[in-house]
Amino acid sequence: MSKPTTSGSAVDVRRTRGSNGWFGWMAGMWVLFFVLLNSGRIDDVANWIRDLPILLEILVWVVLFPWVLATAVWTTSWSEGLRLTLVILFAVIWTIVSIPKPSQKR
């Protein structure tokens, strides 16, 4: 018996859309983070997260980890240069990791 041949293009398209969507989400969230940072509202976001009930705060940390981590770092009393360096590193590394990779043909 012969197997029906499929090109797998539907699977490739679905993976590409998902990858592009994830990358768009990551990049958009970093843009939002820096807009909030530039407008001076990042402290309000940090206070809002800290004021959540503990289970919701944990959920926010898990779901939005890179941005909450960057928010937590930015609101510390560390030097501005160190905070800026760490936040930029977080943004660059998480964005690079999120860049869609071309699918490999099997």
Rank of each mutant, 00 (worst) to 15 (best):
M1D: 14
M1Y: 12
S2D: 15
S2W: 08
K3M: 13
K3S: 13
P4S: 12
T5N: 10
T5M: 09
T6W: 08
S7I: 05
G8V: 05
G8H: 07
G8E: 06
S9G: 07
S9E: 13
D12C: 08
V13W: 05
R14E: 10
R14L: 12
R14F: 10
R17A: 14
R17G: 05
R17M: 11
G18R: 11
S19K: 08
S19R: 07
S19F: 03
G21S: 12
W22P: 00
F23H: 08
W25R: 11
A27G: 08
M29K: 09
M29S: 14
W30T: 05
W30C: 04
F33G: 02
L37N: 08
L37F: 11
S39T: 15
G40S: 00
G40C: 02
R41S: 13
R41F: 09
R41D: 11
D43I: 06
V45R: 00
A46W: 03
W48V: 08
W48S: 14
W48I: 06
D51H: 09
L52A: 05
P53T: 02
P53V: 00
P53G: 02
L55T: 07
L55E: 11
L55R: 05
L56R: 03
L56H: 03
L59A: 15
L59G: 12
W61V: 03
L64C: 10
F65Y: 09
P66D: 03
P66Y: 01
W67I: 01
W67H: 05
W67R: 00
V68M: 02
V68N: 00
A72D: 00
A72L: 05
V73S: 00
W74Q: 03
T76W: 04
S79F: 08
S79L: 07
E80Y: 10
G81L: 09
L84Y: 01
L84T: 14
T85H: 07
T85L: 14
L86R: 02
L86N: 00
V87F: 03
V87L: 01
I88H: 03
L89D: 06
L89M: 15
L89P: 03
L89S: 14
F90C: 01
A91K: 00
A91L: 03
I93H: 05
W94G: 03
T95Y: 03
T95H: 04
V97I: 15
P100L: 10
P102L: 11
P102V: 14
P102N: 12
P102Y: 09
S103D: 13
S103Q: 14
Q104V: 15
K105Y: 15
K105G: 15
R106V: 13
R106F: 13
R106P: 13
